[in-house]
Simulated assay, not measured.
Amino acid sequence: MKKLLLILLFSNIGFTQNIVVEIRLANQNIGAPAFNFTTNNTTESNDIGLNQILQTHNVFQYIHKEGHLYPPFNGRHVEIWCNNCNYSQLVSDLLAYSSVIEKARVTNYESPFKDNLLAQISTANIGVPTGVNNGIITTNDSGLNQIFQTYNVYYYEQNAPFSTNNNLLRYYKVVCDCDNVLLKNALDNYSAIISQTEYPFPVYLLKTTEFEKNKISISPNPFSSDFDIQTEETILNYSLVDISGKLLIATTSKNELDTIASQLNSGIYFLNLELKNGKIGNFKLIKK
């Protein structure tokens, strides 16, 4: 099983430059992959009409793309791979099927979502949310409010509210109806309030074990020294593997994991989580 896992990991690394189509389903239960990503590549959804589109465009992989910061979008993003297809026409056909497909775009494998960011405020008490005005988030800082108004920021929540680490407590999830590249530039230029911003990377399920992906998230990712694992499940074991397949640590303690993670060199790593309910998930981590 370990060899199989490593094959899957390296296979995904090799595809990092591939063009894909990312979609957002109108309902996570309609159009979802018919089964989880395995070595036999998921090629179809649970919707007949959508499957006709996938077959027409020679789709050979249809997998969940997780890690969006807005909870209502959990389980609704899917990544599509196709052979010798017309990507523009595929997107057009998908968008025409609006009863199932809410959004579709051409992008690259592992590309961040286009409408969310992680932002770290400089101090814990300035730039915190105070409410909502006409669907736009308001904070206790007027300059930040102007940026949020300009870029239609409708979701702004503390990323790790139960963390005991001050750096993590100052991270906020920011979701907008905008291009997050423009939002990131605006926030980075507002250095009096925002210390840094990051594009959160998506999460893919790499193992054959059935796993409730919308029950777990890891952020910030990429990380500098610390990262938070948010899940409703109890984690029994953590193991961290480098890109060569070397096991760096296997532990039951998140504190021990954090100690090792803080000492890592920049690069790509893989975190394996064993949950109390018997399920296992594997996630890619990027150390800055």
Rank of each mutant, 00 (worst) to 15 (best):
94 L>N: 04
95 L>E: 09
96 A>D: 13
97 Y>W: 02
100 V>Q: 09
101 I>C: 08
102 E>Q: 15
103 K>E: 15
104 A>T: 01
107 T>C: 13
109 Y>Q: 02
110 E>T: 04
110 E>Y: 10
111 S>K: 06
111 S>T: 08
111 S>Y: 11
117 L>I: 05
118 L>I: 03
127 G>H: 00
129 P>V: 02
131 G>N: 04
133 N>H: 06
134 N>P: 00
134 N>Y: 00
134 N>T: 01
135 G>L: 07
137 I>R: 11
142 S>Q: 12
142 S>E: 12
150 T>Q: 14
154 Y>L: 05
155 Y>C: 02
156 Y>K: 03
157 E>D: 11
158 Q>V: 12
159 N>E: 15
159 N>D: 13
161 P>W: 10
163 S>D: 13
163 S>T: 15
164 T>A: 05
165 N>T: 03
165 N>I: 02
166 N>H: 00
167 N>P: 00
167 N>M: 06
168 L>K: 02
169 L>G: 08
170 R>W: 01
170 R>G: 04
174 V>N: 13
175 V>D: 06
176 C>I: 05
176 C>N: 06
178 C>A: 13
179 D>K: 06
180 N>F: 01
182 L>K: 09
186 A>F: 00
191 S>T: 14
194 I>V: 08
199 Y>H: 12
199 Y>I: 07
200 P>G: 05
200 P>K: 10
201 F>I: 04
202 P>A: 03
204 Y>P: 12
204 Y>W: 07
206 L>V: 05
206 L>E: 12
211 F>E: 15
212 E>I: 11
213 K>G: 15
214 N>V: 07
215 K>I: 12
216 I>A: 14
217 S>K: 08
218 I>Y: 09
218 I>G: 07
219 S>H: 15
220 P>D: 06
